[in-house]
Amino acid sequence: MVNYFSALFSILRKDLAVEWRSRQLLTAMLVFSVLIILIFNFALELDARLRAEVSAGVLWATFAFAGTLGLNRSMAIEKEHSSLDGLLLAPVDRSAIYFGKTTANTVFILVVELFTLPIYAVLYNVNLFTPGFLIVIILGSWAYSAIGTLLAAMAAQARNRELLLPVLLFPVLIPVLVAAVRASTGILDGLEMVYIWPSLNIIIAYGLIMPVLGYMFFDLIVKD
C-alpha cells in the first residue's frame, strides 16, 4: 500500500516538475481559456441579468475545452518517447499511474480555474467566490479529470489521438457538464440546497465511478 501511494505521488510530482520545466500545458490551457471567455464576452452581447444567467454554462464550456488540451498533452508526454513504458515497468499496480495522472490533471485544471475565475468575475460582473460554487468547481474538476484521464489513455493508443480524445470524451462528459452547470447556476442564483443536491449527486457519482473503472481497467487500456 505504501508502495502504491508512493508511486501515485511520484507520478504527480513528476508531472508537476515536467510542467514547471516546460510550461507548455498550463500556458496553452490558460491562453485558450481566456480567449474563449473573451470570445463569449463579445459574441454574446447580453445585458447584466442574462450574463449572470449564462455564467455557469460559459465557464464550464471553457473549462471543458481547455481541459481537453491539457488531457491530450498529459498523455502525449508519456507517449512521445515511450516514457509510459518506463512507468509500466515499475513494480507497482498500474492503476497507481492512472490515479497519479488524474490527480495531476485535476491540479492543472484547478490552476487554470484559479486564474480564469477572477477574469471572468470582472468581465461578467459576477461574484464567483462563494464556498458552494468553489466546491462544485473542485468536484466537477475531479470528475472531469477522472473521466478524461481514462479516455486520454485510451486515445493515446491510437495514431490520431488528438482528434480521437474529444470525440470519445464529450459524449461521456455531457451528464457531468450538465450537472455542473445546473449546480453552479443554482448556487449563483442562491437556490436552496434541495434543488442543487440532485446535480451534485451526479457529479459525485461520476467522481467515484470513473476512478473505480480506472482502477479496474487502466492496466488493460495501456497494455500492448
Binding site: S6, R13, R21, I77, H81, S82, D85, L89, P91, V92
Partner: peptide, 29 residues
C-alpha cells in the same frame, strides 16, 4: 517487474527533466 531492468529502443526518459530528476523519479517509483 522489480527484478527486471529493461532498455528499449528509446531510453524511456522525460526530456523536460534533468538527468538527475529523471533518475530520482524512477528511484522513487
Amino acid at each position: 517487474r522489480g527484478l527486471l531492468g529493461y532498455l528499449g529502443h528509446q531510453p524511456l526518459l522525460y526530456e523536460d527533466l534533468t538527468a538527475e530528476q529523471n533518475l530520482h523519479f524512477f528511484a522513487r517509483l
